[in-house]
Design a protein around this nucleic acid. Structure first.
Length: 289
DNA sequence: AACAGTTTCAACCGCTATCCC
DNA sequence: GGGGATAGCGGTTGAAACTGT
């Protein structure tokens, strides 16, 4: 039996795209928008698989792509996000406007891995290499927990890219590490690379962007912090995790607070670091830099 | 200049998640 | 609720570009 092929392979081109194919695809999407990828090739007059068209558009032809070398700030942001999310390239890409998951994945494998190794840091675990060797078992799981939690908590009405990063949320907290026995008093939160890792990720209810922006405008009494209706409860402070809030340049990419940045997707890929009121001092955002 | 080895990155493949009937 | 169709994701591949000898 098996799956039906994603397209009629006998009559499709493969390999590198020609300029003419690119032009056809661009023209079609400009005229009709991104729609059903499966039917697009035929409609656009392309002898390509829909999947291939989608990939070409997303990774190469999209007008909002940045292209060019990664900046030092982007490097560090990728490293930090990878530490939190693991190999969730699309989620990481969601925090880097103009970059694609494929681009980041390639960049990770070709540049950042080596950079971390040169620093003596294990690229998978983000731990010092000798320490990583020491407790092999526990390291395998640590950096993936956040992403795993987010993925496994999948609710059909939650947009997959919308989850909050919660702290001190008992049901959400998956950070009690395997290498430390659980006890009545939880161990102090670990810190890595200047990030307060007293965090975990859970899904936040998805809202359509306009609704979300409206909500955020309402909630936006405090410029950089908002409360959410998520499971963190009412006394949690949410801190935006977009570029400028991470202390990086390029504040224009942030549209999470209000509609200021034109058409950036940042608000549709929102992470929030939530720290408890009172004790938090917004420590998450301040320690991220 | 020619060749071999290495690096980069666009594209493909297979799988899972989600949608829709 | 079940099953097929579709979209999206992450891992892998391989050709092109680059570097060293």
């Amino acid at each position: 039996m098996g799956r039906s092929p994603c397209c009629e392979k006998a009559h499709t081109n493969k390999g590198a795209w020609t300029k003419e194919e690119d032009q056809r695809l661009i023209a079609y999407i400009k005229a009709n928008g991104e729609g059903c990828w499966r039917s697009l090739p035929k409609a656009a007059g392309l002898l390509r698989c829909g999947k291939s068209c989608r990939l070409r558009w997303i990774n190469y032809l999209r007008p909002d792509l940045k292209r060019g070398n990664f900046t030092e700030e982007e490097d560090e942001l990728i490293i930090k996000l990878h530490e939190l999310l693991g190999n969730k390239w699309s989620l990481i890409a969601g925090r880097l406007p103009g970059r694609t998951d494929n681009e980041i994945k390639n960049y990770w494998n070709t540049h950042i891995k080596r950079k971390l190794l040169a620093r003596g840091v294990d690229p998978q675990t983000h731990r010092p290499l000798n320490a990583a060797a020491a407790d092999h078992h526990s390291q395998l799981q640590a950096p993936r927990r956040f992403a795993a939690a987010a993925a496994s908590a999948g609710h059909p009405h939650h947009h997959p890219d919308h989850f909050a990063v919660l702290s001190n949320s008992p049901e959400a907290c998956s950070h009690s590490s395997d290498d430390e026995p659980s006890s009545a008093t939880p161990p102090p939160p670990p810190r890595h690379l200047g990030i307060d890792l007293n965090l975990s990720i859970s899904l936040a209810p998805y809202q359509p962007q306009s609704e979300q922006l409206k909500q955020e405008e309402e909630d936006d009494a405090a410029a950089t912090t908002t409360t959410t209706a998520s499971g963190a409860g009412s006394n949690a402070t949410a801190v935006c995790l977009c570029l400028n809030r991470l202390g990086l340049h390029g504040g224009e990419v942030c549209s999470c607070g209000r509609g200021g940045a034109p058409s950036m997707q940042a608000s549709t890929h929102m992470f929030r670091f939530i720290t408890p009121l009172g004790g938090g001092h917004n420590s998450t955002s301040t320690t991220m830099t």
